[in-house]
Design a protein around this nucleic acid. Structure first.
Lengths: 336, 336
DNA sequence: TTGGTTGTGTAGAACGTTCTCCATTGTTAG
DNA sequence: CTAACAATGGAGAACGTTCTACACAACCAA
C-alpha cells in the first residue's frame, strides 16, 4: 500500500525508468529524450505526483520565496503582495508570508525561521534592523529590501521615490495658491536610517525651499490620533497654515477630524493631503488627496530583482518607483 | 572549512558525543543525563546551531503552521493573524502565511504548496472550496477552518456566531424604537455553503421575526458601491426604512454616502449599522455602530485547536466565538 | 551466581530529492 | 573498421535530521 505521499520512486516504477530520469524530467534538465519525457509526464499526471519541497531543500532549491512583513496592518501591504505573487504566478516559485511583527527581535526570529526553512530568497518589507544585521542575512540568502532608502551592495532594494512624492504634494498646493503649508511627520525612533517618513519630510523641506517658502514640520505619529493632535496644534496658531500635508493617510484622517471640530471646512478653510492612497481615501465620503505608491509595481519589481539574484543574474541594485499624486476633494485653493 | 551552515554533526563533534544524543537534547527527548544536556547545550550556544527545518521535515515535524488567506485585503485578517501568532509565540511553532487569492484554483494551489512544504498543520481562513475538497486536504494534514459555518468531523472549525451578531444589531435598533429595519447582504455566488453573509442574513430574519417585524433583505455586494446602491434603492421607497443594517462595514460606508447625498442626517433620519468593526469604523469622523468579531480570539482558538489536532488531542470540533455590539454615533432613536 | 531492570548513549537506517559521475548506445569521421 | 564523440539513461552518494534498535553499565533481587 503506497501509504500517503506519491514519491519520485513511485513515478519511476510506473514509467519503468530510474528515479534519476524522473528527476531530470521534473526539473526540465538536459539529457532526456522526447519519448522519455512523454512517458514520465504521463506517469506523473496519472499518479498526481508533486515534488516534496523539504526533500528538495536538502539538495537544491525549494522554489519558495519568503516575504517578511513588518506590520500586517499596514494598508498597502496587500498591494505589494499582489505585485509579488502576480509577477511570480507563472513561475515555479511559491510565495510565503512571514509576520515579523514590529520588534527587531521578532523580525530577526522570523528571518531566521525563513532561512531555516531554506527559502530560496527573501523580500523584507520595511525591516527594522541595522544595516549590519541586514547584510548578515543577505550573506546567507538572496535578499531584496522594500521601503528603506540607502542600502548596500549585499542586497537589492526597491523604494518609492518619497522625495518626489513630497514634492508632488507641495507643488500641487503651491499651484493652488497656498504659501503656509505645514507637514506632519512621524517621530523618529532613531533606530534605522532611511525610513520613508524621514525621506518624505526631507522632500517636503526641499520642495518648500525650491518655492522660496518657509517649511514647518511637526513630528507626532502616523496614527489618527497623531494627525489629530498635530493638526490641533497647527490650527491653534495665530497664522495657521492653509494647508496640511500629512506624511501618511491615517494621520490625514486625524487632521480632517481636527478640522471638523475647529469648524473649518475642507478644502475652503484648510486643504489636507496624505500619503499612501489607502483604500478609504477614495471613498466619496472621505475623498482625500493623496500620493499613490503603486505597491503592485513595487512588489513586482522586488520579485523580479529577487529572482535575478537567485539565478545569479544580479543586474540592478536599487530600483526606484515613481509615485503619483491623486487629487481629490480635500485640496483646493485657499479661501481669499 | 565548515562552509555555511552549522549542522548537528558539528555540535556533536564539539561536544564529543553522537549526533543522536544532540538530537535528543534538541528535541527534549527522554534519555539524557543532566551532564550531557549541559554539555550539548553549551556547544549549541557556542556554535549558534539552529536545526534545519527541511531536514527535519523528512523524518518528523517542521514546526511550521500554515495560514491560508483567501483575501489579503480583508481588514480583519490582521486580527486573526495576531491571535494566531500571539498564541504560538512561546511555542516552537512558526507561522507562515499563504496568499491564496480569491479563486478556488489558486487557493488549491496554495494549500498543495503548503502540504508539499510539509507543514505540520493548516489554518484556512474563509476558504472557497467544496466540502469534499476541504475534507481531502484534511486527510493529508491537520486542518482548522475559520469563518465557515457547517463543517465536518475531518477538520476543526472556528466561527463567529453570526446569528447572534445579527440579533444584537436588530435588538439594539428595535430597542431604540425602530420598526422598519432593512438589511443589505451580499449576492450569493452559490459556490460554498455556510458563508458568513448568508448566516448573518438568516440571523437578521430570525431576529426580526422574534420581534414580530417584517424583514426586508436586499442583496447587492459587500463593497462601498454595493452599500451605496442598496441604500439608494431602499431610501427611494415611499415608506423608507428608518434603519439600515449592512452585513459588512465597507457596505455601511456606502450607505452613509447615500444618506449624505439624500440629505438625510445620521442618525436622526437614518440609523446605520455595519458588521466587522473595521479600523475606520472607530474613527471619530465615521463613528459607525458595528459588530465586533474579536478576530484575535478567533485566531488564538484556531491555533489552539490546530495544535491539539497535531498533537493528537482532538478535543473539540467546532468552536464559536461570541461577537459584541459596538454602539457608536450612527445609530439612534428614529426622529418622530 | 544469574537474570532482570533501569538509565544512558550510539549505530545506522530511513526520509525524498538532486546531481555527479559512469555506462551504454548510436552516429560520424577518418 | 576503428576511434571519437554526442546523446541518453542509471547508480549511488550526498543533504541534515529523527528514531528504532541495540549495547553497555550499574544496580538489585533471588
Amino acid at each position: 500500500m503506497p501509504s500517503g505521499r506519491v514519491t519520485i520512486a513511485d513515478v519511476a516504477r510506473r514509467a519503468g525508468v530510474s528515479t534519476a530520469a524522473v528527476s531530470k524530467v521534473v526539473r526540465g534538465a538536459y539529457g532526456v529524450s522526447a519519448e522519455m519525457q512523454a512517458r514520465v509526464s504521463q506517469a506523473i499526471d496519472e499518479l498526481g505526483y508533486r515534488p516534496h519541497a523539504a526533500a528538495r531543500a536538502l539538495r537544491g532549491r525549494t522554489y519558495t520565496l519568503g516575504v517578511m512583513l513588518s506590520d500586517t496592518r499596514n494598508p498597502f501591504f496587500p498591494d505589494i503582495i499582489e505585485g509579488v505573487t502576480g509577477h511570480l504566478s507563472d513561475t515555479q516559485y511559491q510565495v510565503l508570508l512571514g509576520p515579523g511583527g514590529i520588534e527587531p527581535r521578532t523580525q530577526a526570529r522570523m528571518t531566521d525561521a525563513m532561512i531555516d526553512r531554506s527559502m530560496d530568497g527573501l523580500i523584507l518589507i520595511s525591516p527594522v534592523m541595522t544595516d549590519a544585521e541586514l547584510t548578515a542575512i543577505a550573506t546567507a540568502v538572496p535578499v531584496v529590501v522594500v521601503g528603506r532608502h540607502g542600502g548596500s551592495a549585499a542586497y537589492g532594494a526597491v523604494v518609492d521615490d518619497d522625495v518626489m512624492g513630497a514634492r508632488l504634494v507641495v507643488d500641487h498646493l503651491v499651484g493652488l495658491g497656498h504659501t503656509r503649508i505645514a507637514h506632519i511627520t512621524h517621530l523618529e525612533r532613531a533606530r534605522a536610517q532611511g525610513l520613508p517618513h524621514t525621506v518624505r519630510a526631507e522632500g517636503y523641506r526641499q520642495a518648500m525651499r525650491a518655492h522660496g517658502l518657509a517649511d514647518d514640520v511637526l513630528a507626532t505619529s502616523f496614527t489618527e490620533e497623531g494627525g489629530y493632535e498635530g493638526a490641533r496644534q497647527l490650527l491653534a496658531r495665530a497664522d495657521r497654515p492653509t494647508a496640511i500635508f500629512a506624511g501618511a493617510d491615517i494621520a490625514a484622517l486625524g487632521v480632517l477630524r481636527a478640522a471638523d471640530e475647529a469648524g473649518l471646512s475642507v478644502p475652503e478653510d484648510l486643504s489636507v493631503a496624505g500619503y499612501d492612497n489607502i483604500g478609504i481615501a477614495s471613498l466619496k465620503r472621505i475623498s482625500l488627496t493623496s500620493v499613490d505608491q503603486d505597491g503592485q509595481a513595487i512588489g513586482a519589481i522586488a520579485a523580479q530583482l529577487l529572482v535575478e539574484r537567485i539565478e545569479g543574474r544580479t543586474r540592478s541594485v536599487t530600483s526606484s518607483v515613481s509615485p503619483t499624486l491623486i487629487v481629490r476633494g480635500t485640496t483646493g485653493p485657499p479661501r481669499h
